[in-house]
């Protein structure tokens, strides 16, 4: 830490103001699950919402979706993939460590209940959000089919948790066929559409996956909600970093979303905007990794 502005961080971050990590669990090679004490946030969390964390006093403000929470016990849980500096730093923390900041819950909760027969598609770490959403839908009386996708069996997460939900069906897909069916999540989604056994769909995962899911359901006129993950800074509607085009209109992902009508989202723009800092991000992680002993 240096530079003239460090004073802004000075007065705070006594331990009492920080957020204690209660548990960290590795789910696959690059995917981790963290549980953090944040009673005020947990008390209000709803499925589909997210929060913003900062790892430490130099940290970036980074959004993650709740995969689980307990209002009674005062914790929140999220699943993240190690992709860059912040998520790399997170992997180094364990029970008893502290996060500098946790703020939320942010965004509009996913609409659940009264949807009828729903297909929830979760790809990659999107499975974490899909889990929270599917659980809330089941509880609200919707009939839920989950399509869970991953590149290979190694990367498949939360299979057992999904099994424990009262789903109509759990369909597992891997790109290489190492678990479940061989192929992309759009294949079973297409079958469900063609068989006319779903009334609505929700897709959560990489932008490219959501784009193809939306394209699949569009032809069948199945309303499809997607949970977008644009780059964010404040997460409270102040900066406009998270803007996305939906039906030609500018929307702010953090306050208007993160859920939007998948048939109206400009996915090309979203994917382009997600790439703006790739070079910088690589540089930052490389700098950090120099002094790092983990095997990354």
């Amino acid at each position: 830490m240096s530079g003239p502005l460090t004073a802004v961080d000075r007065y705070r971050r006594r331990k009492a103001d920080m957020f204690e990590v209660l548990a960290q669990r590795q789910l696959s090679d690059a995917v981790f699950e963290m549980t953090v004490s944040a009673p005020a946030v947990a008390a209000k969390a709803r499925a589909g919402q997210f929060f913003i964390l900062r790892v430490d006093a130099d940290g970036e403000r980074v959004p993650f979706t709740f995969s689980d929470w307990s209002a009674d016990e005062g914790w929140i849980r999220f699943i993240y993939m190690r992709v860059g500096l912040t998520t790399h730093k997170l992997t180094h923390l364990g029970a008893g460590d502290f996060l500098a900041d946790v703020a939320g819950p942010l965004g509009v909760p996913t609409h659940v209940g009264g949807l009828g027969r729903v297909a929830v598609v979760g790809g990659g770490v999107g499975a974490a959000v899909a889990y929270a959403v599917a659980r809330a839908m089941c509880a609200a009386g919707d009939e839920v089919t989950v399509i869970l996708g991953a590149r290979n069996s190694e990367l498949l997460i939360l299979k057992d948790e999904f099994r424990a939900l009262p789903l109509k069906e759990l369909i597992v897909m891997t790109d290489d066929g190492s678990a479940g069916r061989h192929g992309l999540v759009t294949a079973p989604l297409k079958e469900l559409c063609e068989a006319a056994t779903i009334d609505a769909a929700m897709a959560i995962g990489p932008a490219i996956m959501m784009k193809f899911c939306a394209a699949t359901t569009r032809d069948h006129g199945i309303p499809t909600v997607v949970s977008l993950n644009p780059i964010m800074v404040d997460g409270t509607g102040m900066c406009g970093a998270c803007r996305v085009s939906v039906g030609g209109e500018m929307k702010f992902g953090c306050v208007d979303g993160p859920d939007f009508d998948g048939h109206r989202v400009d996915f090309e723009e979203l994917m382009s905007r997600q790439r703006v800092y790739v070079d910088d991000e690589r540089l930052a992680d490389a700098e950090f990794s120099k002094g790092c002993t983990c095997r990354r």
């Binding site: 830490m1 502005l5 130099d58 406009g240």
Partner: peptide
């Protein structure tokens, strides 16, 4: 707002020492 927030609040001018890029 975003430009100034990244620089003033997140200290992006000090990247990569501070984590937020600009």
């Amino acid at each position: 707002n975003e430009f100034l927030t990244r620089v003033n609040l997140m200290r992006a001018y000090d990247f990569p020492r501070a984590d937020t890029p600009m």
